[in-house]
């Protein structure tokens, strides 16, 4: 976004603009900065001087939080749920989006509208019914409960985003392939998939962030500590160890850093994906 950076000297107005922007952004980032450096303090220090920098940087807080919080298992569970959920949602949605935009088949309009419902429905609206259904299926307390539900809940949005992208693509290559005698599945696999890859990566990142952070289903469908995901684990951990601020800050820091790094690496994709999601 800053590729065509303006090199003229800044006017006072622009300095004011930059200054105001910096101040607001700094104030907003402060709680997170406070969290990170407080994680190095002892509990007593946090109580006595909430603002002060740590007298001694205690890296052992992080080791302790990692072990006591079982953060390794939480990370692993979250990675499994996010990975499989995203893969399922993006792959199925790309097939459906292809069919909705490129193929004509009975019930297409009705099905497309059915997917619309999923765009607006708030998850709490079916959380309880979903809970009873998953219990009946014996999936409660398994990671599948989260993989399937998160996959299903992101599919409507993913289908629509990819649909929009499909519509922006030219059909020539597909038509050429059709003339050469390829069937629908070959076309989808060999021609369409490579073309929509950039869009798939974008929606995959979007879904990954959403599933990684999902809390409600994670709280309801998993009661076994060993199978929790990070958001639910953090709530649980901070409830149980609420006497130990430094431990909680350390755990929060450990769990926040990876997603932040991921964000700064994939920043363009994330922002582009969101823009596409709404603005088109």
């Amino acid at each position: 976004m800053s590729s065509n950076t303006d090199a003229r000297p800044r006017t006072p107005g622009e300095w004011l603009q930059f200054g105001a922007g910096s101040v607001i952004v700094t104030v907003m980032c402060f709680p997170a900065i406070w969290m990170v450096y407080s994680a190095f303090k002892s509990n007593r220090e946090i109580f006595r001087s909430p603002f002060g920098l740590p007298a001694e940087w205690r890296f052992e807080n992080f080791t302790k939080a990692w072990i006591e919080g079982g953060l390794g298992a939480l990370f692993l569970n979250t990675i499994i749920v996010t990975g499989l959920g995203v893969a399922m949602s993006v792959f199925f949605a790309s097939m459906a989006a292809y069919a909705f935009t490129r193929l004509d088949f009975p019930g297409r309009r009705a099905l497309a509208r059915l997917f619309l419902v999923g765009l607006l429905l708030p998850p709490p609206a079916v959380a309880i019914a979903l809970f009873t259904q998953l219990s009946a299926l014996g999936l409660i307390n398994t990671l599948w409960a989260l993989i399937l539900t998160n996959g299903a809940w992101t599919i409507a949005l993913t289908t629509y985003l990819l649909g929009g992208y499909f519509r922006s693509l030219k059909r020539e290559m597909e038509e050429a392939a059709l003339l050469e005698g390829a069937n629908r599945f070959q076309i989808f696999w060999h021609v369409v998939m490579p073309l929509v890859k950039p869009a798939m990566i974008t929606v995959a990142i979007l879904n990954a962030i959403n599933i990684w952070n999902e809390l409600l289903f994670a709280l309801l469908f998993i009661s076994d500590d060993a199978k929790r995901t990070l958001p639910a684990g953090i709530v649980r951990f901070s409830g149980y160890h609420s006497t130990d601020y430094s431990l909680i800050f350390a755990a929060l820091t450990i769990t926040t850093i990876p997603i932040m790094i991921f964000y700064f690496i994939c920043q363009r994709h994330v922002m582009r994906g969101l823009t596409a999601a709404v603005a088109e």
Binding site: Y98, L103, F105, R184
Partner: peptide, 17 residues
Amino acid sequence: TGLIFVAPALVLYAAFV
């Protein structure tokens, strides 16, 4: 064939939404 393409997404969506 169109339905086959929609089916996986539809099954998942129908079952859990």
